[in-house]
Design a protein around this nucleic acid. Structure first.
Length: 576
RNA sequence: CGGGGUAUAGCUCAGUUUGGUAGAGCGCUUGCUUGGGGUGCAAGAGGCCAGCGGUUCAAAUCCGCUUACUCCGACCA
């Protein structure tokens, strides 16, 4: 490719809209342009990167037994009504109507379509397992698109769906995908972690998210430094405490005046007790498909409720904190003075930790009063005791009790056992060896392609721009003649361009009438792994100068050795 | 959904407080110059000041509404 022809308009300044590194550099280096919030146009360089990622994905999917298909992006509402998701999916689903006012949606995912396809064609256990995948554009009306390519409303995704006879077969498919995903992200040059993820109300053998480690990631990951335990925050647990280490002597319940002490900090400061002695009592609105109710949630004062855990514990559609008026109506006190003692008429969910506190402090359900020396069992009991808290750094690992750590990540892949949720709803059945009709066991396995590209930039950049892993670089080498108008430089540059192209090295030549500095900066910004510089310096010694983007390492080699050296270095970089 | 911010040239931004008919840097065009990390000089082109409606002799500027973009929060008692 000739830089004089390449459609990659670079920007000298950081566009005001870009916050994170991947967004800034992809814009500045001329890879992407925004069309609207959460919608991007991919320019030639980005498209090359995306296709490379796609091809790695494709190879590994094929390797794992997948077959590629292409499915409609525009989907009829009937199928979504059949699966029940037309009503459940909510605002995130892009809905539209055709000229006859029939309902459609733009597919955010393809379970319905593929299950409907498979149910018609698969009848026998002999047809299973079946692994089908597609790489195509999906649509989600995200609450808040953000961080450039990381959270978009329109994005390319690979989804593979597995169809198996039974749990055992499903587990084989799942493991094959787990392995394929590990290979894919390794090949893309990414540092990642597979973490246990929340599998929601569906249950099943589980779910893993593949997280590219990056400070700008949206998800918090909990992991153990000494064993292989890793989970996202919604899923992470720690070894439950068995007892309150403090004094066990049970004191009589007592009401104390705590004027205007609303927050945990105010109460702990006023009563001079640690936050771990408090029971944080929260009133939640629990929304089910057909009804709504209130529930009391209790965690230790130094803990936070994880609403996903709460939602799962109650099998609810949605949970949200009750508004202050409701709190006052139900507890009889303003927000800040709620407590589980004598709070009736609704379920009380308690995290196991709160039941262990000796002589706890709780709100008295009365303005400006708290209760002290509260004892679980004696003074109150929970309807349900269940893990509801966010794990924090330092909690003991549930497997080996080492101190857990947290970090952030970008979720680039998610694998999921669907069980029979869709096959039952959409009647995708098969006949087993005994002639019995059974629902197919399904799994789905997604990878966000543009997000993977963005994650790679988050992980591989410096002040000057992107530093692509070789496997996904749009071009591997750029040739920069310091002065293209100089005949000697031009001829040599063109010769090398020809030689490398012929040797199947993906190469760009900067044939623009620009200053050396401009070309160097553009090459650095765009992130090509290697650069060949041609100028009077190296020409004088009849050597070719090869520079590594990663660290600025420079080699001077003979012309005859260039291809060899380039290939060696590319291989070397790929290894790392 | 709630809250904040922003909207002026292709990009980054001044100008708005105190109304008087539009600016800088970069980019772009042309010519010369220079040629190893965004060269220097000169001459140009380029704006319905997001949109709509008010106030006024006069609005980028004041007031109201709308739209778009962006950040924060998704309420932790």
């Amino acid at each position: 490719m000739r830089m004089s022809k390449l459609f990659a308009p670079t920007l000298r300044e950081v566009p005001a809209e870009a916050e994170v590194a991947s967004h800034q550099y992809l814009l500045r280096a001329g890879y992407i342009r925004k069309t609207a919030a959460g919608m991007y146009s991919y320019l030639p360089l980005a498209w090359r990167v995306l296709r490379k990622i796609e091809n790695i994905v494709r190879e590994e999917m094929d390797q794992a037994g997948g077959q590629e298909v292409l499915l409609p992006a525009l989907q009829p509402a009937e199928l979504w009504r059949e699966s029940g998701r037309w009503d459940v999916y909510g605002k995130e689903l892009f809905r539209l109507q055709d000229r006859h006012e029939r309902d459609f949606c733009l597919g955010p995912t393809h379970e319905e379509i593929i299950t409907a396809l498979v149910r018609k064609e698969i009848n026998s256990w002999r047809d299973l397992p079946l692994l089908l995948y597609q790489i195509q554009t999906k649509f989600r009306d995200e609450i808040r698109p953000r961080s450039g390519l990381i959270r978009c409303r329109e994005f390319i995704m690979k989804d593979l769906y597995s169809f198996d006879r039974d749990e055992k077969g499903q587990s084989v498919s799942y493991k094959a995908m787990y392995k394929a995903y590990s290979k894919i992200f390794t090949r893309c040059g990414l540092k990642f972690k597979a973490v246990e993820a929340d599998s929601g109300a569906i249950g099943g053998t589980g779910s893993h998210e593949f997280m590219v480690l990056a400070e700008t990631g949206e998800s918090v990951i909990v992991y153990c430094p000494s064993c292989d335990y890793a989970a996202n925050l919604e899923r992470a647990v720690s070894t439950p405490a068995t007892a309150d280490p403090s004094s066990k002597v049970e004191q009589p319940l007592q009401k104390v005046h705590t004027p205007s002490k609303y927050s945990i900090e105010e109460v702990t400061g006023f009563l001079n007790v640690p936050a771990s002695k408090l029971v944080k009592t929260l009133l939640y609105r629990i929304i089910y498909r057909d009804r709504e109710e209130l529930a009391v949630v209790a965690v230790r004062g130094d803990r936070d409720v994880n609403e996903i855990k709460l939602k799962n514990a109650l099998q609810a559609l949605e949970v949200e904190l009750a508004d202050p008026i409701t709190v006052e109506r139900v507890t009889g006190a303003p927000v800040g003075f709620a407590g589980p003692v004598d709070l009736q008429g609704m379920p009380i969910l308690a995290d196991p930790e709160v039941t262990l506190i000796n002589n706890a402090v709780v709100g008295a359900n009365q303005h400006d009063y708290h209760l002290i020396n509260v004892s679980y069992g004696r003074d109150w009991t929970a309807t349900k005791i269940v893990d509801l808290k966010n794990v924090i750094e330092g909690d003991p690992c549930p497997r080996c009790n080492a101190s857990l750590k947290t970090t952030r990540g970008i979720e680039v892949g998610h694998i999921f056992n669907l069980g029979t949720k869709y096959s039952v709803a959409l009647k995708a059945m098969y006949l087993d060896e005994n002639g019995a009709s059974k629902p197919i066991i399904m799994g789905c396995y997604g990878i966000g392609i543009p997000r993977t590209m963005a994650a790679a930039v988050e992980q591989h950049h410096d002040r000057d721009g992107i530093i692509w892993p070789v496997s996904i670089a749009p071009y591997q080498v750029s040739i920069v003649p310091v002065n293209y108008n100089d005949k000697k430089q031009r001829l040599l540059a063109e010769e090398l361009y020809f030689m490398l192209s012929k040797a199947n090295v993906e190469v760009v030549i900067d044939d623009r009438d620009e200053r050396a500095g401009v070309k160097f900066n553009d090459a650095d910004l765009m992130g090509f792994p290697l650069r060949i510089t041609i100028g009077p310096r190296s020409l004088k010694d009849k050597k070719i100068e090869i520079r590594r983007r990663l660290d600025g390492m420079v080699w001077l080699v003979d012309k005859e050795a260039v291809i060899d050296k380039i290939q060696t270095e590319l291989a070397e970089l790929t290894q790392q």
